[in-house]
């Protein structure tokens, strides 16, 4: 527990730092043409086969080798993955992030009838769905290993960039279209909350991960209360700056 809490703290503390520095991999998404697949067919074949070995063998080069063999490749083909076991972790993170848009479906807003689901509720649903995948794929018991790999100094930037992309994906799928200063605080707080909950989940013994769900709800509530979620510091400063003039005017000050 001590190790994973320390890791979580490193991850969350530096996640804030790295989010203030925009990830360089972000780019214009053409809405009319889908992005190319993130992995080549050979990579996908080996890594998805290797993932099946993770519950038994962990995020290790052993799983990678077994996966290559299962997929019909030579053991030497694991040379495709210069970052070794981390490439397996990365494959898992990327594919799970991209799977979210299909695994969680919200009723269309225009459908009428059902009450509108708030963006905050949708974010919660998405975060839970993503956490549940860790249990379904059976990697929860091995997540400490994954975190240890992710927190290595040379791999930390890539891990944080992926965490930032996950937070961005969740806000996007939740239908949040705000593009003001809150853009940053929303993503930073969700990334922090999500990674803390993920660590909590590795220690959760309750049935159906009920405690994890409660933990997530408590963190989200904190986020709302402190205002890190919707009324971020940056937004507050900007808003106050330019509305100061308006407030003074509304008080009858002739400026």
């Amino acid at each position: 527990m001590a190790t994973s809490t320390r890791l979580a703290r490193t991850l969350t503390r530096s996640s804030l730092r790295s989010l203030s520095k925009p990830p360089t991999t972000r780019r214009y998404h053409a809405a009319d043409s889908p992005p190319p697949p993130p992995f080549s067919p050979a990579e996908s074949a080996i890594l998805s086969a290797a993932l099946a070995h993770v519950p038994a063998n962990g995020f290790t080069s052993t799983s990678l080798r077994l996966g290559a063999r299962d997929a019909g490749y030579l053991d030497a083909s694991t040379n495709l993955f210069p970052r070794g076991a981390f490439d397996l972790v990365n494959y898992y993170l990327v594919t799970q992030r991209l799977a979210l848009k299909d695994s969680v479906q919200f009723p269309a807003e225009s459908a009428g009838g059902g009450a509108r689901i708030g963006v905050g509720k949708k974010v919660r649903t998405l975060a839970l769905a993503r956490l549940r995948a860790n249990a379904e794929v059976g990697v929860v018991g091995r997540w400490g290993e994954a975190l240890a790999l992710m927190a290595q100094p040379t791999l930390l930037p890539a891990s944080l960039a992926e965490l930032a992309r996950l937070a961005d994906e969740m806000w996007f799928l939740a239908g949040d279209t705000a593009v003001d200063a809150s853009w940053y605080t929303k993503r930073a707080s969700l990334a922090t909350i999500y990674s803390a909950t993920e660590v909590f989940m590795t220690q959760d013994q309750s049935t159906g991960f009920k405690d994890t769900e409660r933990f997530l709800d408590a963190r989200l509530e904190d986020g709302m209360r402190v205002g890190g979620f919707l009324g971020g510091v940056g937004e507050w400063v900007g808003y106050t700056g330019h509305s100061l003039v308006n407030v003074l005017r509304s008080k009858g000050v002739r400026i």
């Binding site: 203030s20 925009p22 972000r26 214009y28 998404h29 053409a30 809405a31 961005d168 996007f172 593009v179 003001d180 200063a181 853009w183 940053y184 940056g234 937004e235 400063v237 900007g238 808003y239 700056g241 330019h242």
Partner: peptide, 15 residues
């Protein structure tokens, strides 16, 4: 729509 981040200088430019 195109998932572009706003500028990090947003509050500064506002002021």
């Amino acid at each position: 729509k195109h998932r572009i981040r706003p500028t990090a200088m947003y509050p500064v430019w506002s002021v």
